[in-house]
Amino acid sequence: MGLSQEADRKIEEIKAKYPNARSAIMPALYMAQEELGHLTGDAIAWVADKVGVSPAHVMEVATFYTMYYKHPVGKYHFQVCRTLSCAIRGAKELTKHLHQKFGILPHEVSGDGMWSYEEVECLGSCGTAPMCEINDVYFENLTPEKLEEIIKELEATQPDIRYSTLKDAIGAGMKNTRSEVI
């Protein structure tokens, strides 16, 4: 059990870019996560095998960093920034909205596998607070109302939200929440 042939090929390319192949552990974990949704035992074994370290070492790395998911997350995973600048501009209301809307606690996944959310630490978007990251896309200058609009749009069109595939996948309503800090 491993990853796709494409992943097998790409990881060799990545390893060659670094002075030491061990540096490829983090990129490899991202590749596995992107294919499998979260880091399964197979994913850990694949990374260990490709990079030439023990699965225990890979697990140690995977559990240290918060952006590697050790458990499944929803198709749309909301990360509300809770640190100071967002907090004093109303981040709590966003989390409260998600809690009420989805009826789940942080880190839980809704029954249909669509939604999950958590509070995270400073996302470097303090000038456009409060904000929320959905998968790896920032949505800024939010209010609970704007967040609700976004959720409705996600429900209706179910786009693939990742930066690499984003382009025109999202509707105008959502685009407006991507703001420029300059």
């Binding site: 870019k17 670094y18 061990r22 983090m26 991202y30 960093y65």
Partner: peptide, 26 residues
């Protein structure tokens, strides 16, 4: 090379960053 971190504040400390780049906990 462009290297992506994975959500650890401490990797902004230069030796934490180095450890992380070496494929370890930061």
């Amino acid at each position: 090379v462009t290297h992506r971190g994975a959500g650890a504040y401490i990797c902004g400390e230069e030796t934490g960053l180095i450890e992380s780049l070496e494929g370890k906990k930061g």
